[in-house]
Design a binder for these strands. Structure first.
Length: 128
DNA sequence: TTGTTGACCTCTT
DNA sequence: CAAGAGGCCAACA
């Protein structure tokens, strides 16, 4: 085989040698701070980072959170409506519900019950 | 290289 | 009240 430099595929997240903190790292860090039994929304994280418009990026970050370490409790992150929008992206479509059930979080019709009560605002907990 | 898609949110019609 | 479009950043084709 000829000398091909691009032997490995580009890492989805956390490129090697990148010392600078990326938007994704910020998301992972915040999600890891989510206490057990609590949940947050993509927009809340995005807003805490500074731009609430980047809520989409938060979702993309979650996509790579599965192969990122330490593992990120992506099941604790839902959309603004408290709906398990990303449940289909988990290992199994019921995994998210299962994990939330272990957190004593009730899920009804793919929607977290008392979402507002279990809502964890990073801007208040971490934002000081 | 450009163009499109994506686990969203908010505003406007 | 409901539906549509815009906008952010990154990865994939």
């Amino acid at each position: 085989m000829p000398p091909k430099k691009s032997a490995e595929k580009p890492r989805t997240v956390l490129p090697s040698g990148n010392k600078d903190v990326s938007f994704f790292e910020q998301v992972y860090d915040v999600v890891r701070q989510i206490p057990k039994g609590r949940v947050t929304s993509y927009g809340a994280i995005a807003a805490f980072l500074g731009t609430k418009m980047s809520a989409r990026m938060v979702g993309w970050a979650m996509n790579g959170s599965f192969h990122v370490q330490p593992k990120v409790p992506a099941h604790r992150v839902v959309n603004r409506n408290g709906m398990l929008s990303g449940k289909a992206h988990f290992a199994t479509p019921t995994l998210m519900e299962e994990l939330l059930a272990k957190e004593k979080i009730k899920v009804k019709d793919d929607v977290i019950v008392d979402f507002e009560k279990k809502f964890w605002d990073p801007a208040v907990e971490i934002g000081l």
